[in-house]
C-alpha cells in the first residue's frame, strides 16, 4: 500500500538557506549543501527546494558561513543531487519550459511551478506534455479571506488573483499537474499548524496527490495534515532546522500516530 510521505522543504534565498515567516521575514540559516546533507537523512521520503530569491545570479561566497563559492542555482542543484538519493523537486522563478528543462537536466526530478501558471495557465499543459504529469507540481499559495474561504496569491504572496484554491487546483489537474502543493500564507512560519480546512478542501477537489505546507510548529501537526487534512504527503521547512535528527523525530511521530509511513530508521548509506 502506498505510504504517506514526509517531505522537508528547503527555502533558498540568493543561495543561502533561509527561514521564512508569513512570506515576508527571512532569517539566514546557512549553506545549502551542509543543510541538505543533514536533511537527506534517510527518514525523509523526498525533498523540495524552493528558490525564493528576487534575482537570478548571486554569489555564494560568504566568509561568515565558511564555505566555498558556488555561483549559481544550477551548480547548487547539481551539488545537492550528488548527495541525494531520493526524489527532489525544485521550484522558484520557473517561467519557461526551458527553465524547467534546465532544472531537470541538473538533477531535479520534479519542477514546482506557481506564479507563471497563474499568469499563463497553458504553462502547466506545456510542462506536462514535455516532462510528463508526474514531473509537474503546482504550488498554490493561499490566504484566508473571510470565514473558511481562501484566495490564491501569485508572486510569493504579493499579488491577489481572485481565484479560489480548490477551483484553481481542479484546473491545474485538468491541465496536467501531477501533484498539488498547498501552502498557507497565513500559517507560514507561525508554528500554529496547517490550515487544515484549506488542505482538506484541496484534497477533496482533486484526484492527484496533495502535499500540505505551512505552519508546522510541532511534530503532531504533521499527522493532522494527513488525518484531518486528508493530504497524501506532509511537508514543512522551518521546524526541521531546530533540532538534531529532526527528520527522524518527525517521521517517528507519524509512525507512532499509526500512519502508513516508511518505518523511521537512521540507517545510512
Amino acid at each position: 500500500m502506498l505510504k504517506n510521505r514526509l517531505i522537508p522543504v528547503v527555502l533558498l534565498r540568493e543561495g543561502v538557506v533561509v527561514q521564512s515567516k508569513r512570506f515576508g521575514r527571512y532569517q539566514l540559516l546557512g549553506n545549502p549543501a551542509t543543510i541538505v546533507e543533514r536533511l537527506s537523512d534517510w527518514a525523509s521520503d523526498e525533498l523540495i527546494y524552493l528558490d525564493i530569491s528576487g534575482r537570478r545570479d548571486y554569489d555564494l561566497g560568504r566568509d561568515d558561513l565558511a564555505q566555498g563559492r558556488t555561483s549559481d542555482l544550477l551548480s547548487i542543484l547539481r551539488e545537492i543531487s550528488r548527495r541525494c538519493f531520493m526524489p527532489m523537486a525544485f521550484g522558484g522563478g520557473l517561467r519557461t519550459v526551458e527553465d524547467c528543462a534546465e532544472r531537470v537536466a541538473n538533477g531535479a526530478d520534479k519542477v514546482v511551478i506557481n506564479t507563471q501558471a497563474l499568469h499563463e495557465p497553458e504553462f502547466i499543459d506545456r510542462c506536462a506534455k514535455e516532462f510528463g504529469a508526474q514531473c509537474v507540481v503546482v504550488c498554490i499559495d493561499a490566504k484566508q479571506t473571510v470565514d473558511q474561504t481562501w484566495e490564491v496569491f501569485a508572486e510569493r504572496g504579493k499579488r491577489p488573483t481572485g481565484r479560489s484554491p480548490d477551483q484553481w487546483a481542479k484546473e491545474c489537474q485538468e491541465r496536467g499537474a501531477g501533484e498539488i502543493l498547498i501552502q498557507s500564507i497565513d500559517r507560514d512560519g507561525t508554528g500554529q499548524g496547517y490550515d487544515v480546512p484549506l488542505v482538506r478542501s484541496i484534497a477533496r477537489a482533486v484526484q492527484v496527490p496533495v502535499i500540505a505546507l505551512g505552519g508546522v510548529g510541532q511534530w503532531g501537526h504533521l499527522a493532522d495534515g494527513l488525518i484531518e487534512g486528508e493530504a497524501d504527503a506532509v511537508s514543512a521547512a522551518n521546524i526541521f532546522n531546530y533540532s538534531e535528527n529532526s527528520v527522524l523525530k518527525a517521521k517517528r511521530s507519524l509512525f507512532e500516530a499509526g500512519l502508513n509511513v516508511r518505518e523511521p530508521s537512521l540507517a545510512s548509506h
Binding site: 502506498l2 510521505r5 521520503d45 508526474q134 501533484e179 484526484q207 492527484v208 497524501d232 504527503a233
Partner: peptide, 13 residues
C-alpha cells in the same frame, strides 16, 4: 481512480 486512489501513483510502496 476507479477505487478512489490517486493517480499518478507517487511515493514509496
Amino acid at each position: 481512480e476507479e477505487v478512489g486512489l490517486r493517480v499518478p501513483h507517487i511515493g514509496w510502496n
